[in-house]
């Protein structure tokens, strides 16, 4: 069965969705990603959807689920590169994906992930173990 490849870059996982996804493929991606996050102890997930021509409620929900599951596993998710037409349509559809962080492109998405990861590290270094909750 088709799979969407997941790349690892240090503490981060990178996914580029390039195909017109059918629902099962989206669910497989959700499974694969959550597995990989816990396997490698990833701190961030970047999903590039710049080549996606539509995001319907199912794909939108899958993205939201991935973000929530990643958060539970202590990883931040950022969705990058949503096309204007896709964004307009999603809003009209009634989905504003409030739980998802977005960025214009891979570069600013990575910047965001690095910043949040560093912020998390600082607590560990300066605050000591006891302040972590």
């Amino acid at each position: 069965m088709d799979r969407i490849p997941i790349l690892r870059m240090g503490n981060f996982l990178l996914v580029t969705i390039q195909v017109d996804m059918h629902d099962r493929l989206a669910l497989t991606l959700q499974d694969d990603l959550t597995n990989r996050i816990s396997e490698v102890g990833a701190r961030g997930v970047l999903i590039d959807i710049s080549s996606l021509e539509i995001v319907d409620s199912f794909i939108g929900r899958t993205l939201a689920n991935i973000a929530s599951m990643a958060r539970v596993l202590d990883a931040q998710t950022v969705v990058v590169g949503m096309q204007p037409a896709v964004a307009i349509t999603l809003v009209e559809l009634g989905m504003s994906l409030p739980g998802i962080r977005t960025a214009l492109n891979v570069e600013s998405g990575m910047e965001y992930l690095q910043e949040t990861a560093e912020a998390g590290m600082e607590i560990g270094v300066y605050g000591g173990d006891s302040t972590e909750d």
């Binding site: 964004a87 307009i88 999603l90 009209e92 998405g109």
Partner: peptide, 12 residues
């Protein structure tokens, strides 16, 4: 509001 939400979805 829709414009603002769409911009946010794109990361702006």
């Amino acid at each position: 509001l829709k414009t603002i939400t769409a911009a946010r979805l794109m990361g702006a």
